[in-house]
Amino acid sequence: MSILVNEDTKVLVQGITGGFGGRHAGLSLDYGTALVAGVTPGKGGQSFEHGDHKVPVFDTVGQAVAETGATASAIFVPPPFAADAILEAVDAGVDLVVAITEGIPVMDMMRVKEIMKGSKTRLIGPNCPGVVTPGTGPDSTGGCRIGIAPGYIHKKGNVGIVSRSGTLTYEAVWQVTQLGYGQSTCVGIGGDPINGTSHLDVLKLFNDDPETEAIIMIGEIGGSAEEEAAAWAKEHCKKPIAGFIAGATAPPGRRMGHAGAIVSGGQGTAEAKKAAMNDAGIVVAETPSEMGQALLKAWGK
């Protein structure tokens, strides 16, 4: 088991013929992901070739789903067209949309989120590194990689990781792997102020996943999603959690790289988030170098 995706998940990539989308589609194929289709309007009938792989390209997500049975879509479409691409995937009925695109206007995401209410599709991101469920092959190949995370740092195991930041996720994954443990699934939920899936949503999924034994939750300044997740975990989470919050030294009122990473009007501070996590019994690492150790402490290993 794992959450969201596994080695059998059929994945399509919207924006597969772009440089960025194509590069990562290739890396996902190398990882063993069941990447069955690409979508680029106007390029239907062509194919995306990578090594021995030949992936058919369609004009629309609807065609790609009908022809290949894909149930998950990765969005690598440029920001002005990304909201439209997400809604196209939702309309085509895929279960999971992972939006990698950075720089989508907030108003666009506000409308997407409202339109998606009540739909069966789950959105991860945008502005996120994606989702990885490691496999059992060398360098964790044979799993499912949707997005831009480096596959080789993973190892199949029992730690679930959820984070707003890409590189901090990789730090956590790498430390867990170096310590001899592995990951059930790693989920980057993205650094934007409006996203499809929250820390809390992912904690609930990990809590219900029999393969996940312990959790690392990585947050950063801005919003209150970490506090909400911690409050829920205090009452309901059966599994040990370690955490880290970035941005304690960030000046108020400034956006720290991620559109959502901002302390405004005294809200969204690292102190408040760490306090909420401590209150929930989450072991909070003081620096990212200690995330692995914090996990072991929480997990009793």
Partner: peptide, 28 residues
């Protein structure tokens, strides 16, 4: 590289007793 790691690096400098001069994310 990376906004989250860049913030965490500033925090680590502070934690080690110093003061960061900037936030700088060169991107992925």
């Amino acid at each position: 590289n990376g906004a989250g790691l860049a913030m965490a690096t500033m925090d680590a400098i502070k934690f080690a007793g110093g003061d960061p001069a900037n936030f700088l994310d060169v991107g992925g």
